[in-house]
Computed example of a mutant assay.
Amino acid sequence: MDLFSLSWTALRSAVADVPDEDFDRPSGCTGWLVRDLVCHLVIDAQDVLITLVTPAASAPTVDAVTYWRLVGPPTGEDPLDALVPRLAAAYGGPELLRFHLDDVGGAAGRAAVLADPAARVGTRDEVLTAGDYLSAYVLEWTLHHLDLIAHLPSTAGPPAETLAASRAALEAIAGAPFPAAFSDKDALLIGTGRRPATTAERTALGDLAARLPLVLG
């Protein structure tokens, strides 16, 4: 729960510090500008609010690791992926988009603090505890924080604690550790295909290299 708040607060603070002119620069999400990524974060925040007030009575079907599904690389044909750039453009500029993220994102952050970690919630036709759901989102926020700063070197990056937790989560999803020589940031970027591995890195990855990237959905 603390890592959720830490990662989400850091990401929202980083967005708040992005100059208006940088909203039209590319993000680390293929095909999305920074403004598109921020719009996606608004939708994510709405999803958090919806899920935390969607109680479930049945036993959990997934946890913080198995919540994530391995999907193929984006094709541009997913309706939501196609909607996001159009929706972001409709904001007309960074000011309203930034305000909406602060407004809805702040509510999501408060809801997370108030949530009972043991309560069962439903989302994506699955059931899991609120604690596991929020833990899963640490990986989401951290990866998108890296996406935000991909071409904005002066913007603050994710906290070390959330980078480490996200690496551990990705290793659990992969079922294997990344080489100890990899920094947490590099493990996340290479592991999810956000940057290609060098020849030396592929050698260090061994058999795991053939299973990358891990595209999460």
Rank of each mutant, 00 (worst) to 15 (best):
F4N: 08
S5A: 15
T9N: 13
T9L: 12
A10F: 04
S13V: 04
A14R: 05
V18Y: 08
P19H: 00
P26M: 00
P26A: 01
G28F: 04
C29T: 11
T30C: 05
W32D: 01
W32A: 03
L33R: 15
D36K: 03
D36H: 12
H40K: 05
H40Y: 03
D44A: 12
A45N: 02
Q46W: 05
V48S: 01
I50Q: 10
V53H: 07
S58E: 15
P60A: 05
P60T: 02
P60Q: 09
A64Y: 13
T66L: 07
Y67V: 08
W68G: 03
W68C: 06
L70A: 11
L70M: 09
V71N: 06
V71D: 10
E77P: 00
E77T: 14
D78M: 01
L80Y: 11
L80E: 09
Y91E: 01
R98C: 04
F99D: 13
F99A: 14
L101D: 02
R110Y: 00
A112F: 01
A112M: 08
L114C: 02
L114A: 13
A118Q: 14
G122S: 15
T123P: 00
D125Q: 14
E126T: 15
V127N: 10
T129N: 07
T129Y: 07
A130R: 04
A130L: 09
D132P: 00
D132G: 11
L134G: 06
L134W: 03
L134F: 01
L134Q: 11
S135W: 03
V138G: 10
T142A: 07
T142W: 10
L148V: 06
H151Q: 06
P153C: 00
T155D: 00
T155F: 05
G157N: 04
P159W: 05
E161C: 05
T162V: 14
A165L: 09
A168P: 10
A169W: 02
A169P: 00
E171K: 06
E171F: 05
A174L: 15
G175S: 10
F178V: 04
A180L: 13
A181M: 10
A181V: 14
A181D: 14
F182P: 02
K185I: 14
L188P: 08
I190T: 09
I190W: 12
G191I: 12
T192P: 08
T192M: 11
P196L: 09
P196K: 12
T198I: 02
A200E: 15
A200R: 13
E201G: 12
T203C: 03
A204E: 14
G206M: 10
D207M: 05
L208G: 08
L212D: 12
P213Y: 03
L214A: 14
L216M: 10
L216E: 08
G217N: 13
G217A: 14
